[in-house]
C-alpha cells in the first residue's frame, strides 16, 4: 500500500530487528549543563589574558609580602647615591634620599594592597548585609535602604573623604573605613538584585516553611548562593579602593608618613619630575598594573558567570 521513497539497503535490514524494543527506563541522557566552578575553570583556561593577569597580580602580591627579602631597608638613606638611575644594585634606581626605589615600591605595595583589600572586605560585608536585608525584607525597608544607596552614590565621595580627613588625622583604620563607607553601594545593589531572585527559589521557600529563622535563611541559603557574584563585585571593589587610596595619598590625605603607599610615593616624586622622571614612573606603573589585572579578572569572572555569553 505505501510506496517506499528512500532506497534501502535490503541486506542491512533483518526481520528480527522489528521486534518491539525493550526500553531502559533508567537511561539518563548526557547532561550538558556545567557547574559554575567548571565554567570558571574553563573560561580561565581559554582566556590566556586572564591567566597572565592572575600571574602578574600574584607576583605583585607575593613580592610585597616578601619585601623583607630585599637587601635594602626601604628607609635606609644613602646620600652618596641619590637619584641614581637603574643599575645592577638598584634595579629602578634610587630616590632623592638615596633609598632604593624598587624596595620602596614593594613596601608601598604592602600599604596600598592591604588598604585596598581591607576596604573591599569591609565594603563587601556592609554591602552584603544591607543588600540582602533590603532584598529579603522588601517593602518600606527596601525603599528606605535603596534611597540611602542613591544618596551615597550621588555625593562626590573623594571630596567628602578629603573634607573628613582635613579634620580627622588619617591612618590605616580610618582610611579603610572611609573608603568602604563610599564603596559598599555597588555591592549592595548586586546583592539585593540576587536576593530578590533567590528568595523566590524553592529551597528558600522550603526553608521558610520549615520555620528556619530569617537571619539563618539569609546567611545559610541566600548569601552562599551568590558567592560568585560577590567575588566579582569584590575584585572590582579592590581595584576601585586601590585607585581611590592612591588619589587620596597623592593629594596628601592618605596614610600618614613615614608609612608610604604608591600614591604617597607619587606625591613625593612629583616635586622631582624635572630631575628624575623615573621616580614617578614606578609607583604609578605598579598601581596601573595591579588595578588593570583586578579589573580584567573581575570581567573574566563576570563573563564566566553570565549564561547568555555561552550561547
Amino acid at each position: 500500500m505505501a510506496k517506499l521513497l528512500t532506497p534501502l539497503d535490503k541486506a542491512a535490514i533483518r526481520a528480527e530487528d522489528f521486534a518491539k524494543a525493550v526500553k531502559d527506563e533508567n537511561k539518563v541522557e548526557a547532561s550538558f549543563e556545567r557547574t559554575v566552578f567548571q565554567q570558571l575553570v574553563s573560561s580561565f583556561r581559554q582566556n590566556k589574558l586572564a591567566i597572565l593577569c592572575l600571574i602578574v597580580l600574584l607576583t605583585i602580591i607575593l613580592s610585597s609580602i616578601f619585601a623583607f627579602l630585599s637587601p635594602y631597608d626601604p628607609d635606609e638613606m644613602d646620600v652618596m647615591n641619590k637619584m641614581a638611575g637603574p643599575s645592577a644594585e638598584h634595579w629602578f634606581g634610587t630616590d632623592e634620599l638615596g633609598r632604593d626605589s624598587f624596595t620602596r615600591a614593594l613596601y608601598g605595595g604592602r600599604v596600598s594592597l592591604s588598604v585596598g583589600f581591607s576596604a573591599m572586605v569591609v565594603s563587601v560585608i556592609i554591602g552584603t548585609l544591607i543588600g540582602s536585608v533590603s532584598g529579603y525584607v522588601g517593602g518600606k525597608v527596601d525603599a528606605v535602604l535603596m534611597r540611602v544607596v542613591d544618596i551615597f552614590q550621588s555625593v562626590p565621595s573623594l571630596l567628602m573623604i578629603i573634607v573628613f580627613f582635613s579634620f580627622v588625622p588619617s591612618n590605616m583604620v580610618t582610611l579603610i573605613i572611609m573608603l568602604a563607607l563610599f564603596s559598599w553601594t555597588g555591592v549592595a545593589r548586586i546583592v539585593r538584585a540576587q536576593t530578590l531572585t533567590l528568595k523566590e527559589r524553592d529551597f528558600v521557600v522550603a526553608a521558610k516553611v520549615l520555620g528556619v529563622s530569617h537571619a539563618k535563611i539569609i546567611m545559610r541559603h541566600i548569601v552562599p548562593n551568590m558567592a560568585t557574584q560577590i567575588i566579582v563585585a569584590a575584585s572590582l571593589s579592590v581595584a576601585g579602593a586601590i585607585l581611590d587610596e592612591s588619589a587620596l595619598s597623592f593629594l596628601g590625605y592618605g596614610v600618614a608618613l613615614p608609612k608610604s603607599s604608591w600614591g604617597s610615593m607619587l606625591q613625593n616624586a612629583q616635586q622631582y619630575i624635572l630631575y628624575d622622571p623615573l621616580l614617578a614612573l614606578i609607583p604609578g606603573a605598579f598601581i596601573l598594573l595591579t588595578v588593570l589585572c583586578l579589573n580584567i579578572l573581575g570581567d573574566v569572572l563576570q563573563h564566566a558567570l553570565d549564561p547568555r555569553l555561552h550561547k
Binding site: 588619589a247 597623592f250 619630575i273 614617578a280 609607583p283 604609578g284 596601573l288
Partner: peptide
C-alpha cells in the same frame, strides 16, 4: 578601555607633563 578605567588620573597627568611639556 581597560587601561582607561585602571589608570590613576594624577599619574597619567604627571606622565603627560614629563613627555609633552618637559
Amino acid at each position: 578601555t581597560y587601561v582607561g578605567v585602571s589608570m590613576p588620573a594624577f599619574w597619567l597627568g604627571i606622565m603627560l607633563i614629563i613627555v609633552f611639556s618637559m
